[in-house]
């Protein structure tokens, strides 16, 4: 364990500075901005609205459709190739699966709720920031939800379990390198709707990391709630 002092001087369990705002896009039915450190996610929700092509319609419930996009100038160093790719498509899917369990669209058969997540600035943890922003935007759109979803990445860098990794920490190569675990949690029940893992980890370390994720998600949940309440002050 040599990674005891983090690159940005945070404590091991500290999150980067968080900022959230609901209702930032007037033309959307619901929208939100979520900023964690240098990662910024904008989410816009449209719908429920008529779904085309027709074969995608589900007559027993509305469906959720997510779209994740990193803007070309958002990353470190090299420009991100614009438009969708294998990675964006996968993340769109996992975002949909992370958010769907809290949503109830039974009242809206044959419709779709579209969520667009744009990332104008990125420094790791984009899918988590995207999910967190999308949860605020979905609530802002007035949809029936049993809870919000709070997401963040936890991980192991140089043998130390830490929360909310930055890009530098994800790219850490000494001493077993870096393990990155994006987690999305439904705070009221503690259910996990997203769990991915990139790197190496023992079973005990994973349990430890998930405990940390739960603690950190509670902090994010609070910010989400405040953002929604501030919209109607």
């Amino acid at each position: 364990m040599t990674y005891t002092k983090r690159f940005d001087g945070r404590g091991q369990e500290d999150l980067r500075p968080i900022e959230a705002k609901a209702g930032i896009i007037p033309n959307a039915d619901g929208s939100a901005m979520f900023k964690i450190g240098n990662t910024v996610a904008l989410a816009a929700v449209y719908g429920p609205r008529d779904l085309r092509p027709k074969f995608m319609q589900n007559p027993s419930t509305g469906i959720l459709r997510c779209n994740y996009n990193m803007m070309p100038f958002s990353g470190h160093g090299e420009r991100v190739r614009p438009g969708g790719g294998r990675r964006a498509k996968e993340i769109s899917m996992i975002m949909q699966k992370a958010l769907a369990p809290v949503l109830n669209l039974k009242e809206y058969p044959n419709t779709v709720v579209d969520v667009f997540v744009e990332l104008p600035q990125t420094d790791a943890g984009t899918r988590c920031a995207g999910i967190t922003a999308a949860a605020i935007a979905l609530a802002d759109a007035g949809l029936e939800m049993k809870d919000l979803v709070s997401a963040l990445a936890v991980g192991k860098v140089g043998g130390t379990i830490i929360s909310d990794l930055t890009y530098n920490e994800e790219a850490y190569e000494e001493e077993g390198g870096s393990t990155d675990i994006p987690v999305a949690i439904i705070p009221s029940t503690g259910e996990i709707t997203l769990l991915q893992l990139d790197g190496e980890l023992t079973k005990d370390e994973l349990t430890q990391a998930l405990e940390l994720a739960k603690k950190s998600a509670a902090k994010i949940y609070k910010v989400q709630q405040e953002a929604l309440k501030a919209r109607f002050k």
């Binding site: 809290v102 705070p187 009221s188 109607f232």
Partner: peptide, 8 residues
């Protein structure tokens, strides 16, 4: 009061 989803 303004309540958010999941609030007790």
């Amino acid at each position: 009061a303004i309540c958010t989803p999941g609030e007790i």
